[in-house]
Nucleic acid binder design. Structure first.
Length: 565
RNA sequence: GGGCCCGUAGUCUAGUCUGGAUAAGACGUGGGACUUCGGAUCCCAAGAUCGGGGGUUCAAAUCCCCCCGGGUCCGCCA
């Protein structure tokens, strides 16, 4: 809705510039004035015109302000030096905003575009650790946002069941006498097994041959028994992973096993196509030279024993995805940048679409990077438990009136919220050094957003607010307290934020917005009386619209909005 | 060595794509606000030569070049 205002202002500016007979600059942008006294929107278009007209910006701005005609949603336009400042008519605008927010606020009409988002795709050789979680949270949130923005979204988890890592786990199952501890989560047990095999391999490098042979048999052989071993190992681990993901409100529509592309012949057919196009070369291995594309490193397509590599299968996977959607997005750690460049060239040769990639930087521990192989990591399960426990501790202090079950329920929502928010609020290109207290803060973070929501629920209930009762736009009283105006303005920006977040594929814009919105609400709540005031009806409407908007914003971040906390 | 990313108050960040007015938040620190709807809240204060240096521009945290510091990639791993 705020967008409408901006467009109206731009239109008015353009019209005026044309009327004055000046050449319209290619792009007219608006900005936020540095403080509210200078209005709601500002234009520095006079600078652009100054160059063209060889006259002073102030003079030109004055001319425009004299001539400009505005819609009634604007109260006035003022000249401040070279700047043209627009003041919104909040009497009219507020009513419009309050009236138009419904329970699905922020949801766009379908745009008939199917988009596949691949995220998480962690190897099933151990539990998810807090390094993986950035992928899941960004991927899940952007999927939700794109869905809201009108896309038909399918989320996919690419299951690596053919890699050497998995062969190592299978080898461990077959050769080590490893006792699974049934009381532990299965993915954690597999992680321990994987660690042990790595230790063995370090002690005896010859083992590599045995593992390679397993890999070869799995890829070539139709030996049902071995196939079952791989499937079992992967499935078991994946169950643990799915369970963890579910705890943090992440799920996938489809799980695609990479072996599918070997079995159905698409890997072979892609290799064939590349050979026919005469772009591959062979020494001990089949490879795709990439110097001509500015990449030193060639893309190896098959091992010397003929088996396929991850990249080859990934190539087939991307061709497959490409055929099944209009746009595709991968969420990947930035360490995959070179690999994706290589892949994209190969896809281009195959006349297939390259993925758009959301890259994120690593999360490391203060003492260094995490590694499943070395068994050095903080698992997501561990983090969730810690988060929920801390939230529970807070509830014991703040809400002794609640039952144990209620406290547990809320602690989960608050704890998970803290985790998701911690990741979602940061730009993905920022490297994170993990510290518990930063990750699980309950002040001015997600908890304060959830708190604003719970507060609004409570207040509506206390005032006996009836959601189904509609009131006419003309009945809405003028809400002109600065905190009311600010809150309404913030509410009206929600759709723009979703649009921008979806377009730029940047989740943190929305996370930032949610905090701003909660802040605007908390300030309003502190300084304006609702219950029993002479504007109770209208203010309750404002509280309800805020409640809806916070809830929807949190939903898009995969965070629950408790009614009480 | 080459490629990519990051560097903004003591700490963590937003703003960089698309240049625009006094660089915006949070944590921490110091003060303050409950006879009105929930204090996981709100208000006030101190704290920044936007890593350094050049350049482009009427205007640079933002664009270009060089340098410094940190991360990461450069596997017949995934």
């Amino acid at each position: 809705m705020y967008r409408n205002l901006e467009q109206m202002a731009i239109k008015a500016l353009k019209k005026t510039i044309n009327k004055l007979g000046y050449e319209e600059p290619s792009e007219i942008k608006l900005e936020q004035p540095p403080n509210p006294e200078l209005g709601d929107l500002a234009s520095a278009v006079s600078f652009q015109l100054a160059k063209q007209l060889k006259r002073s910006p102030m003079e030109i701005a004055a001319e425009i302000v004299n001539e400009i005609k505005l819609s009634e949603l604007f109260e006035k336009v003022e000249l401040k030096g070279p700047y043209i400042n627009f003041y919104v008519n909040y009497n009219k605008f507020s009513r419009m905003v309050l009236k138009s927010i419904k329970t699905d606020y922020g949801q766009f009409k379908p745009n008939n575009t199917k988009i596949i988002v691949e995220h998480t795709s962690a190897n099933p050789n151990g539990p998810l650790h807090i390094g993986h979680i950035r992928n899941s949270i960004i991927g899940d949130s952007i999927s939700r946002i794109l869905g809201f923005a009108g896309y038909e979204v399918e989320t996919q988890y690419y299951v690596n069941d053919m890699g050497r890592q998995i062969a190592m786990v299978v080898w461990g199952f077959l050769n080590l006498d490893f006792e699974m501890d049934k009381s532990e989560k299965i993915d954690h047990e597999i992680g321990k097994l994987y660690f042990q095999v790595n230790e063995k391999l370090r002690a005896d490098p010859e083992l590599k041959n045995e593992i390679d042979s397993l890999l070869k048999q799995y890829e070539y052989g139709n030996e049902g028994k071995l196939e079952k071993s791989f499937e079992n190992a992967v499935n078991q681990c994946l169950e643990g992973v799915k369970y963890t993901l579910k705890k943090i409100n992440v799920s996938h529509d489809t799980y695609v096993w990479e072996s599918k592309f070997v079995k159905d012949g698409s890997v072979a057919s892609i290799l064939q196509t590349l050979k026919e196009k005469n772009v591959t070369k062979t020494n001990e291995v089949l490879y795709l030279p990439l110097e001509d594309y500015g990449i030193e490193k060639e893309l190896v397509l098959t091992r010397s024993d003929g088996t396929s590599l991850y990249s080859t299968r990934d190539l087939a996977y991307h061709v497959y995805k490409s055929k099944n959607c209009d746009e595709l997005i991968d969420v990947l750690g930035s360490d995959h940048k070179l690999a994706i460049d290589q892949l994209s060239i190969a896809l281009d040769i195959l006349d297939s679409r390259s993925p758009e990639v959301i890259f994120y930087e690593f999360i490391t521990l203060p003492e260094g990077s995490m590694s499943t192989r070395r068994g050095v990591f903080i698992s997501v399960d561990e983090m969730v438990e810690e988060a929920v426990q801390r939230a529970f501790g807070q509830l014991e202090i703040k809400r002794p009136d609640l039952t144990e079950e209620e406290k547990i329920d809320i602690a989960k929502k608050v704890g998970i919220g803290a985790i998701r928010y911690f990741i979602a609020k940061l730009s993905p290109e920022k490297h994170i050094v993990f510290k518990w207290d930063e990750a699980l803060s309950f002040e001015r973070g997600c908890a304060s957003i959830q708190y604003a929501h719970a507060r609004s629920c409570k207040l509506l209930k206390k005032c006996g607010y009836d959601e189904s009762k509609s009131i006419a736009e003309s009945e809405i009283e003028i809400l002109d307290h600065p905190t009311e105006i600010d809150l309404i303005k913030t509410l009206s920006k929600f759709t723009s934020v979703i649009e921008e977040s979806a377009r730029l594929r940047r989740v943190h814009l929305l996370a930032q917005y949610a905090l701003d919105l909660a802040g605007a609400f908390n300030k309003f709540y502190k300084s304006v009386q609702v219950k029993g005031s002479n504007k109770e009806v209208s203010r309750l409407l404002l509280v309800d619209r805020t409640r809806i908007t916070i809830r929807n914003a949190l939903y898009l971040l995969g965070i629950d909005a408790p009614n009480s906390m």
